[in-house]
Design a protein around this nucleic acid. Structure first.
Length: 220
DNA sequence: ATATCGATTATCT
DNA sequence: GATAATCGATATG
């Protein structure tokens, strides 16, 4: 397992445009792999590479929170693309999604695992883990609930946050110099069924970077 | 290594 | 009142 890489300065990360998210969530999910989630914290932002995601379609996907139509909880999924949809689950954990598709149409991508790049000490503190232990390092951001805890993501703080602006406290970017289509091309991407659902469990809409140690759960 | 189980609460039926 | 896009702990092979 690789040691965390040198900290990228956010000055060299630029946000993905809203149009990036204004598409089918399966397409967005695949292309989000390798991109960077940023938590602005004054100096010393938290950054991590996206290594595992799942696509949830709109009202036609029985596994999606939007399957039964718009409610107070899932309203962000029906709003404009590129916003954070945060939900609370099992009385314990938050999960992060980004809304996709044009306004009025639901759809989103769930963040399942990240590879920490900078702010690792802060993440460890938030998770109550010790980085000296390699096992604990993996557990920092390997899972949808874990990554939210590492980034201190809550519904109260971050639901409906605009993820397309570097001025937001939470946003998504890519390294300057890489083109959106390009950065995905060289990656080894694997698709599998989605984790932890019972409906539409056969759909292969989980996307991950093959071999990345931070990917959650078991492969296959 | 895999399996099972309890925690704990917002949300919806 | 039941459920849930999970996690961590415990038990067993």
């Amino acid at each position: 397992m690789p040691a965390p890489q040198a900290s990228p300065k956010t000055a060299y990360i630029r946000p993905l445009p809203r149009a990036f998210y204004n598409r089918d969530p399966r397409r967005v999910a695949r292309e989000l792999l390798g991109k960077i989630l940023v938590r602005n914290r004054g100096r010393n932002p938290l950054t991590a590479r996206i290594v595992e995601v799942e696509a949830y379609l709109g009202e036609k996907d029985p596994a999606a929170h939007s399957a039964a139509g718009r409610t107070a909880r899932n309203a962000v999924l029906f709003g404009p693309p590129g916003r954070a949809y945060i939900y609370f689950i099992y009385g314990n954990h938050y999960c992060l999604n980004v809304s996709c598709e044009p306004e009025g149409q639901a759809g989103g991508v769930l963040f399942r695992a990240l590879e920490p790049l900078s702010g690792v000490e802060e993440m460890a503190r938030a998770r109550g883990l010790n980085i000296e232990n390699p096992k604990d390092l993996i557990k920092l951001t390997s899972g949808p609930g874990r990554l939210c805890e590492a980034f201190s993501i809550t519904r109260a703080r971050d639901n409906d946050c605009d993820l397309t602006s570097a001025a937001s406290t939470l946003w998504i970017g890519e390294e300057v110099g890489k083109k959106i289509g390009d950065s995905t091309r060289s990656l080894r991407i694997r698709t599998t069924p989605r984790i932890g659902i019972s409906k539409a469990a056969d759909k292969p809409w989980r996307y991950l970077l093959d071999g990345n140690p931070f990917v959650s759960g078991r492969i296959r």
